[in-house]
Design a protein around this nucleic acid. Structure first.
Length: 364
DNA sequence: ATACATGATTCAGC
DNA sequence: GCTGAATCATGTAT
């Protein structure tokens, strides 16, 4: 039969003790007139509130994202807690904390707070929800993985870019230049992404530790279960993961822009080499009456020029229309290729006749 | 810096 | 699906 018993006896009125009662000088006087236990309670509550407020302020000063304290402060304590000493000095704070911890009424008050909490925490438990894996973040993760931004460093999107470059018909040398350029830029994005991610993770763990220490500290003066601390940590992690999602989103955008720039064939147009152009022109001018190569002819030309069939089709399409638009301009070129074709034909026939009678030069 | 050349794309018509 | 026409975006010569 000691402080605790007396405390419990005196607690009959605690349930109804509102913030107004605590803050009101009249009510303090009333309590004082009621005797020692009430005075003790008022005293100890003042100290708890002062410490709780101060430690929260301290926490908020370290960049806490706004809503969290409201979520974990139990309703009952919220009722009791008014900001009575938000601007106390640290020394003052330490002093009060010490005074409270040594207060003879502390264990009793603690047990009462536990009781009150038992009643309120039930309703909180029901609200607690398991958050399912966010489909949005899963999509982003998959994409970053596919592009080679997250996960082990390898080909990924750059391989796709190289394939596209090859399909577009760039020479092997050109596509390898594109490839390395793309890879360099992707690596840059990758590096930024990882350094930012690391920063966020570090900030998250630092802040989580800070809040956990804070709650552990507070758990000496008010009941805070490990489960609550866990929930608090989950809230912090949710907050930081939403920031991470923004990072992932912007990284995805950057990769998309990079890809579109490298995969847009028009941006990396390369002129065909001289020999390829000659082969195409030779065919065009030698078939000027019907410059529509068959599929087989296109394949043959593509092979000769080291380009794709569709590039041959494009070339003929452009050539026909540009020739038709300005025949005069192309006349010189047409003559050139006509002569060239004639010379080639003559050479071929000469070689053929030589081949036909190599051993009998005088036979003609 | 500018004009011109050229490969690729888009779209309508057949 | 092929073609012509218009257009885009880049390469090249000046």
């Amino acid at each position: 039969m000691d402080d605790q018993t007396r405390m419990l006896a005196g607690m009959g009125g605690l349930g109804g003790l509102s913030q107004a009662d605590v803050g009101d000088p009249d009510s303090v006087r009333k309590q004082q007139s009621l005797g020692q236990p009430q005075q003790d309670i008022g005293d100890i509550l003042q100290q708890i509130m002062a410490i709780t407020d101060e430690s929260l302020d301290e926490a908020q000063a370290r960049c806490w994202p706004e809503e969290a304290p409201a979520q974990w402060t139990p309703q009952r304590e919220g009722e009791l807690g008014g900001s009575t000493a938000g601007c106390a000095l640290p020394l003052n704070f330490q002093h009060r904390k010490h005074a409270l911890n040594c207060h003879r009424m502390k264990p009793a008050l603690f047990s009462v707070l536990c009781e009150i909490k038992e009643k309120t925490v039930l309703s909180i438990r029901g609200v607690q929800e398991e958050d399912p894996p966010d489909p949005q973040i899963m999509r982003l993760d998959n994409m970053l993985l596919a592009e080679g931004v997250s996960g082990p460093e390898k080909g990924g999107g750059s391989a796709a870019a190289a394939a596209a470059a090859a399909a577009a018909g760039g020479s092997p040398n050109d596509s390898s230049i594109e490839h390395s350029d793309y890879r360099a830029k992707l690596a840059q994005i990758r590096q930024i992404y990882h350094s930012e991610l690391e920063k966020y993770e570090q900030a998250c763990s630092e802040f989580t530790n800070h809040v956990m220490n804070l709650l552990r500290e507070q758990s000496r003066t008010r009941p805070i279960s490990p489960k609550e601390i866990e929930r608090m940590v989950a809230i912090i992690h949710r907050k930081f993961s939403s920031i991470q999602m923004q990072l992932k989103q912007s990284t995805c955008e950057a990769v998309m822009i990079l890809r579109s720039r490298f995969l847009d064939a028009r941006r990396k147009r390369r002129n065909f080499n001289k020999q390829a152009t000659e082969v195409l022109n030779e065919y065009f001018y030698s078939h000027l009456s019907n410059p529509y190569p068959s599929e087989e002819a296109k394949e043959e030309l593509a092979k000769k020029c080291g380009i794709t069939v569709s590039q041959v089709s494009n070339w003929f399409g452009n050539k026909r229309i540009r020739y038709k638009k300005n025949i005069g301009k192309f006349q010189e070129e047409a003559n050139l290729y006509a002569v060239k074709t004639a010379v080639d034909a003559a050479n071929v026939s000469a070689q053929a006749s030589q081949a036909n009678s190599p051993a009998t030069p005088n036979s003609g």
